[in-house]
Amino acid sequence: MKTRIKPDENGFYGEFGGAFVPEMLYNNVNELQNKYQSIIDSKEFQDEFQALLKDYVGRPTPLYFSKNLSAQFGAQIYLKREDLNHTGAHKINNAIGQVLLAKRLNKKRIIAETGAGQHGVATATACALLGLDCTIYMGEIDIQRQKPNVDRMLLMGAKIQPATSGSKTLKDATNEAIRAWIKDPVDTHYVIGSVVGPHPYPDLVAQFQSIISQEIKVQLKEQTGNENPDYVLACLGGGSNAIGAFYHFIDNKKTKLIAIEAGGEGVNSGKTAATIALGKKGIIHGSKTYLIQTNDGQIVEPHSISAGLDYPGIGPIHSYLNDTKKATVVSVTDAEAIQATLDLSRKEGIIPALESAHALAYLSKMTFNLEDVVVVNLSGRGDKDLGTIQKYMNNEQ
């Protein structure tokens, strides 16, 4: 599996990354660091992984040319339809890969964190398929606002462990999952759902998600004669869908990479998850990156209407891409994301996840030429968000 962006031997992308973990987890993390690349590069692994992506997940996902959005924004707008994957989002790409890896490491139990529930559903799905015990850690608030996904996880045999501390959202679910891993490091593999956490997780997840940009290049070549778009847009929370969409374009100067954070109620409102806009360098969940924190280093509780972007940091790869200007990081608000959800639903008959809607919303802030080729990564579908959308609209009336 060829890579375009690799950490150094200590897991750093420039000054970001590393593996800052409790002593109890040294052996686990070292085992992963020493074995993950040789395992996932092996023909046996790749044969099984690629067969499951094709026949079980449903890849390749379509690259859909949107005539309606193209006419609206004055450019050639394509949607990468990750929402059409089995389980409804890009998360299944990584979940299948990591559970296959865990089996080859002789792990008996899988744990994972989830915010929007899509990673939890994907992990529960992979565990049901491959026969491993599964426990999902999820914030108490997210359990309430993502009930359809909770029901799906339970139906597939996963156990749900609520996180009841802090903001009771994604950050706190991640804290609880790490604590559980410390208690049972030998038999347990922690399937991290984004490009966050200690090395090698950012690289591991990025490689599994790189299938997105790999397919975009092939599909654009077929449809336009050119494999490189002018712009790729993706929402940015932890950053797995964004790195998947960016991966094979990072060294291509023609393609501008734009990551869209959750501005919440406004970057300066005190209710936001815009990490690059507000963040300072620090360590969260085992790696050095940008995170929203007070002057004395206390993490500030993030806010987003989208549960999957409700995280106070970003993956170290994205901090590196931002600082080296290989990608541009911007933000849109809750209200703008809701409007983009309504627009796509009514103009294309596609209901996007609220996370993906952040990327769609930024189209209205850009100026294009008619010949510009723009790919928006539609990272998930919005079935899970219908209650949140309805509640928001009722409150606005």
Rank of each mutant, 00 (worst) to 15 (best):
T164L: 11
T388Y: 02
Y13K: 05
F12I: 05
T388G: 07
E336W: 12
K288N: 11
G225Q: 08
G266Y: 03
S66I: 01
A75F: 08
D383M: 04
T255G: 08
S319W: 12
L291S: 11
F20C: 09
I212W: 00
H303Q: 12
I284K: 06
D133R: 11
I92D: 00
N94K: 04
R346E: 15
I350E: 13
V29A: 02
T367E: 07
P7A: 14
A71E: 14
L363K: 07
N93T: 00
L100K: 07
N28Q: 12
L100S: 04
H189N: 07
C127T: 15
L129H: 00
V205T: 04
R81S: 01
G74R: 09
R81N: 10
N68Y: 12
K108A: 09
L130G: 06
A327T: 05
K256S: 13
C134F: 01
E15I: 15
F208R: 14
R4E: 06
L129K: 01
R4G: 13
V121H: 00
A273E: 05
A51D: 15
L105P: 14
C134N: 01
D172M: 03
Q76E: 08
A361C: 14
Y26S: 12
I338K: 06
S306P: 10
H248Y: 04
G286P: 01
I211Y: 00
D172Q: 07
I258F: 07
T388F: 01
A273I: 14
Y320H: 14
L321C: 05
H318Q: 09
R381M: 02
L233R: 10
V373Y: 01
Q144W: 02
G264P: 06
S42P: 11
G237M: 04
M393A: 08
V186P: 00
M366A: 10
K347N: 11
D133Y: 12
L132E: 05
P62C: 04
T294D: 04
T135K: 13
N106I: 01
Y190T: 02
E113V: 04
K288H: 09
T114I: 09
P148G: 13
A274H: 11
D230K: 04
H119C: 10
S210Q: 11
L155Y: 13
G286M: 07
R145M: 05
K6A: 13
L53K: 08
E371K: 15
F246M: 05
A89Y: 01
K288T: 15
L278I: 05
G315F: 11
A126N: 07
S66P: 03
K43P: 00
I40K: 11
N241V: 05
K183Q: 06
L291T: 02
Q161V: 10
